[in-house]
Design a protein around this nucleic acid. Structure first.
Lengths: 249, 249
DNA sequence: ATCAAGTTAATGTCGGACATTATAATTTTA
DNA sequence: TAAAATTATAATGTCCGACATTAACTTGAT
């Protein structure tokens, strides 16, 4: 453990050093300094970083501040913290990468609200995908749609195939944020749905539309693809409304 | 609202209610106990909750634990915390709410990608707002737009006013997820932007469009409102591209 | 060699002191 | 009287030091 000595300035009185550091504000400073430390020490996933108290000394801040910063990172899934094992990196940290924690508060009555934010993202994703995809990605999308139809017509569980199909589209969009956002919104939706209703099987009726969607995307026709996706979203929404008993948004 | 003086009840003993809480373990317990407290006191959005130290006393835990719990809520956007103003509820808290932590990893080159996911959300938000808003909300939106224009024409910092304007629209949409998502995406965008470029002042040229947007929403014309918002988003995107030097998505 | 008991090094928690600051109250001044 | 400047105050922000807890490590006994 290289001990990454970033600050070896021998602060005779820890006061003056602090003064010139201009300790301003929140724990983001600490996180930023930590990012630099980690990069300097070339720590990777799984590596252990120094104990809180040493980090605190090194950065000339109190242990509480370091704690809060590390807890924030823990909440973001960037580090794990254990009693004796200390703090370990759980994900790559790079100084010019910023981890934005998004937290959605979902309530049981907000299935429709969740759907309402998913809808424009899905539509835009297919539109962008149609514009950005490479030829090969178009072929993959067509193939995935065929797989989905096959599984569906065979009467098997089509959800995994459906997931692969949509993943292919999101990948073709070239923007990983679409997939990240949509998938996690979807996870939240499912978590809410499962509590009262069990495993969701929504959208079965929309599967025959998927090959059409695939063709539109592969043809590069963003408008048509968006139209199809709109229909799909509307059908899912209608299904949710039927289950809940009425519109809510 | 009622500024909930839930704490003004002279806590002579303040023990009996909390004895059965049997504190143990991590800060989730504190959050749970706090949820119960908040529900009992019927606190709503905007209301203030007791100072950290009183909460700590009430729950028989140290102040640090309460702090960590409240900071976690702050990171989730559920409360806001200010020096003297104390802690206020920013979103509804309910015991059976599900908190879904979303974490997006953003990198410096993905400003445009971030914008790309924000765009459809903003457009849909104004469309829904136009459909759902009450008459009073429409008036508020118009007023906020006027404020924004006044600040802008006075040459002052218009960002706070801009934020209030968009908040009013998001609130009118009736779906808090729009605001939660968009705000946090925006925070991420700003965090990325600030590192190399400093405080963002993007979108100045779009301000004159805002009154038009406000009128469209207040009139209930979702299509027109969406059109204006599209133009606004396109202008911002063009600005970002001009800064970065080329399209990236 | 294996298991049990003790050691220890880290995080977890607490509480007190002080710093900082946004709001509230007060005084001053035009 | 009203606006502006000043002071007071109450909350969070930060630091520190002590102790609790716990899980990995060490040592010892069988």
């Amino acid at each position: 453990m290289t001990d990454a000595d970033a600050t070896s300035k021998s602060p005779t009185s820890s006061r003056e050093a602090l003064d010139h550091l201009e300790q301003s504000g929140d724990s983001r400073d600490v996180l930023e300094a930590l990012s630099v430390m980690i990069e300097r020490a070339k720590l990777g996933v799984g590596d252990r970083l120094p104990p809180e108290i040493e980090i605190a000394k090194k950065l000339n801040v109190g242990r509480s501040k370091v704690r809060e910063a590390l807890i924030a990172w823990q909440n973001m899934g960037i580090v794990t913290r254990n009693k004796k094992a200390g703090t370990r990196l759980a994900a790559e940290v790079s100084a010019n990468a910023i981890h934005m924690p998004l937290t959605l508060k979902l309530e049981a009555e907000s299935l429709l609200r969740t759907h309402a934010v998913r809808r424009p993202l899905e539509i835009e994703a297919v539109r962008v995908a149609a514009k950005q995809m490479t030829e090969q990605q178009g072929l993959i999308i067509i193939a995935r749609a065929a797989e989905l139809m096959a599984v569906y017509e065979a009467g098997e569980d089509w959800r995994a195939a459906d997931h692969r199909f949509h993943s292919a589209i999101h990948e073709a969009s070239g923007n990983p944020l679409f997939e990240q956002l949509i998938r996690q919104i979807q996870d939240g939706f499912n978590a809410i749905y499962e509590a009262p209703f069990g495993q969701p099987h929504l959208g079965q009726a929309t599967i025959p539309l998927h090959p059409e969607l695939a063709r539109a995307v592969a043809k590069g026709d963003g408008a048509a693809a968006a139209k199809v996706m709109e229909r799909i979203m509307d059908m899912v929404e209608a299904e949710v409304i039927a289950i809940l008993g009425g519109p809510d948004v």
